[in-house]
Design a protein around this nucleic acid. Structure first.
Lengths: 186, 186
DNA sequence: TAGCACATGTAATAAGTTACATGATTTT
DNA sequence: AAAATCATGTAACTTATTACATGTGCTA
């Protein structure tokens, strides 16, 4: 009868609720969908997805439909009303912020303990990575704008892409400043 | 005699090596120093620091000096030559990058499942947080520039601070764009 | 003398990745 | 016939946080 408060939950459950709000999905399909949608700022592994879906079904947040289409076995999960309610509740809750660990900055902070050329190489590598990322994000923005014109979620999806472009552009500028500093140091 | 390769190590060890390269420190002092130095992009808890220091001493990366000054018990750790060598090796290794989870973007991606005003409030809260962060970073930049003028590590320390200001400034702009979008939606 | 800062450490818990194990269906 | 893809799930391991446990010395 009594449901023990499960203590500060992770967000894996909520991310799956969100994805399932787009339509019924299997665990395998969820994994694929992540790569094509929220993959630039969120990941989930199979080791998390399958056990979490099972728990969510037990909690009544999703319903399961076994699909033995004569074909492969497959479990398709759908949001229930309590699941939709839980998603809405979570969306309205404040975002928890913690310090993200940044290994590049950690190395740079101790940069004068290493070779200057090595430190410079780390920044160059990051610059190249960010350059590729920026191109990818710009392509995504073009594509979703074209593919989902008029979709009520499009403004929200664009916000997430533009977060990436804004951040990436700024950090590319930072890389260039760093490389200038490296040149001045020698 | 044979040392089993400890498999892909975490960076807690390396962060402690870096901090100890600034001078001998106890576990407690390390925690304090983190708050005053790399706290904006790196954290370590006591639960990590103490066991890791013990392991590092066993591995010969640091030496321990018990300090029963007639005062409190205290263990002061110092880098050994193998520790310094390990730090240099790590600094030269490429930075591993993985997708950082961004809970704000996760919520915004599913934003049209919630109340528009709630989503807007999430962005406003983030804007306020970033505004405070920017002020803090600017103050730090002023202070370390004044306090450590001429210090060989200063250019590196400034790089880490400017990473923060560049990122924060860009994301503040993004917040404003989002809030404009929210206004246009209503 | 009460409370705070100093100081070290362990245990419980949480969260997540990777590798393993299994097997069906489709494509080359 | 082999390889790739679809599909589900578990086990082992790693990493980290939080809470707990303990005790000293200084200051209000």
């Amino acid at each position: 009868m009594s449901i023990e408060a499960p203590a500060a939950r992770a967000t894996t459950t909520e991310s799956l609720l969100g994805l399932l709000s787009l339509g019924p999905l299997s665990g395998y399909e969820i994994r694929q969908l992540i790569d094509e949608s929220i993959g630039n700022f969120w990941t989930e592994s199979f080791g998390q997805i399958y056990p979490t879906l099972k728990r969510m079904a037990a909690d009544g947040l999703v319903s399961v439909e076994e699909t033995p289409d004569g074909k492969r076995r497959k479990k398709t999960y759908s949001l229930t009303d309590p699941g939709r309610e839980r998603l809405r509740e979570w969306l309205a809750m404040p975002v928890s912020v913690q310090v993200p660990r940044n290994e590049l900055l950690l190395k740079l902070f101790f940069g004068n303990r290493g070779e200057r050329s090595e430190m410079q190489r780390l920044v160059e590598t990051r610059r190249d990575l960010l350059t590729a990322r920026l191109a990818r994000l710009r392509a995504i923005e073009q594509q979703i704008t074209a593919d989902h014109a008029g979709h009520p979620a499009l403004p929200f999806w664009l916000m997430t892409v533009r977060y990436g472009t804004a951040e990436t552009t700024a950090l590319l500028g930072w890389c260039k400043d760093c490389l200038t500093t490296f040149k001045e140091m020698s």
